[in-house]
Nucleic acid binder design. Sequence first.
RNA 1: GGACGGGUGGGUGAGUGGCUAAAACCAGCAGACUGUAAAUCUGCCGCUCCUUGCGGGCUACGGAGGUUCGAAUCCUCCCCCGUCCA
Length: 411
Amino acid sequence: MSEPRHKSIDEQLAYIHKGAAEIIPETELRAKLEQSAKSGKPLRVYLGVDPTAPDLHLGHTVVLRKLKHFQDMGHTAIFLIGDFSAMIGDPTGQSETRPPLSREQVDANAQTYLAQVYKILDPEKTEVRYNSEWLGKMSSYDVVRLCGHYRLARMLEREDFRSRLEKNLPISVHELLYPLLTACDAVELKSDVELGATEQKFNILVHREIQREYGLSPQVVFTMPILVGLDGAKKMSKSLGNYVGINEPPKDMFGKLMSISDDLMWSYYELLTDFAPPVIVRLKEEVRTGVLHPMDAKMQLAHTIIANFHGEAAARSARDEFQRVFRDRQSPEDAPVRKLPRGAPKRLSALLVELNLAPSRAEAERLIKQGGVEIDGQRVDDVKHEIDLSRPGSRFLLRAGKKKFLRIIVD
RNA sequence: GGACGGGUGGGUGAGUGGCUAAAACCAGCAGACUGUAAAUCUGCCGCUCCUUGCGGGCUACGGAGGUUCGAAUCCUCCCCCGUCCA
């Protein structure tokens, strides 16, 4: 471990502050930073995740990026994989007990998870832990003791529980255990700061209190806002389909990012880029006064985010491609290629389903009828249209809807 | 354990024997307009077959049986959720 080059406390705080939703208590963070500077002992900062959704999207990166900020300043970033707590599942309103993940599943998930996380964090400097390490060893006696440290009334203060009680929705007892068990992580890790999205605030606060119960110096609660998804309304999530995956091809990322609303772009600037706050303010002002076209601001945003994950060159080519296809209305240069076996003519609608461009024949036909399908730039709205698959080597460009292109080659 | 209320399409939620593939709203999709933005307008929105027609078939209102020419709607049993009482 090389000696970290500490910035001044004020500089650190300013850097850390960007995008933060809440820091509780703020004064304690400063005190801890000062203490750390004095003793040369880095702060222990952790982020806990359930390894249940191994495909990361930009929403996950908000908090990861914050963890990286701490790491960049020489503090210890701890990435905690909640392999044990995942089987309880964080209360979500429809919570069910999930079957425990097998060791193999956990390992596999953790590997794909980490591979993605390391696109942001420095693998050399990241401490990775699994909470089955200690939670798996607890006896029921330990659990009872743990529960003794917290009151039901406090537990029911949680917004999610309260609203479910009000709405007469079910709350399972095991859900109450989630914040308590994960508190053991904070105790075990002796963390100074715990990061999380705002929806984790309650849990992290419980962790803080339990740490105190166990005689530790309580951690600082550090929350980041939830990233709003592409629809501009709901939280970014895979199930809502309003997400940008960090492993997606640069071109897809570009298209998706360009489709966000102008208003939303600013929170993306704040939460997904390292642009300094004053720079963002200036951009915003330029757009407001008409000096900068909002689309150009958005392109810069998309470019910056993509460069983070795929590098500068890929970002640039995604941008060029975007302009070619959507501004200049030319066909995409490198649409994904699909080979089809030679054979009898096939209905276009059947082909769309076969190629996963439509979920069902009915929808494929609808798409065609409504003029959403093009072959080599020509709209095809005849439901009965058949595709000739008899000549080997023949090729055409198929477009289904706004964004989906496939280059078809007959084998 | 008892009393009562409830379980409808991706979501909210109408519907109490046929006119209901099931109102309405939201979400979603396509087209127009654009900056592949937002807003707006138009259309679509269970699956499937073909002769693409206000066409045929199949599946669908927690589950399983039953009554009926006909059931999301009535009956029986079961499962699940909530409230109150203990």
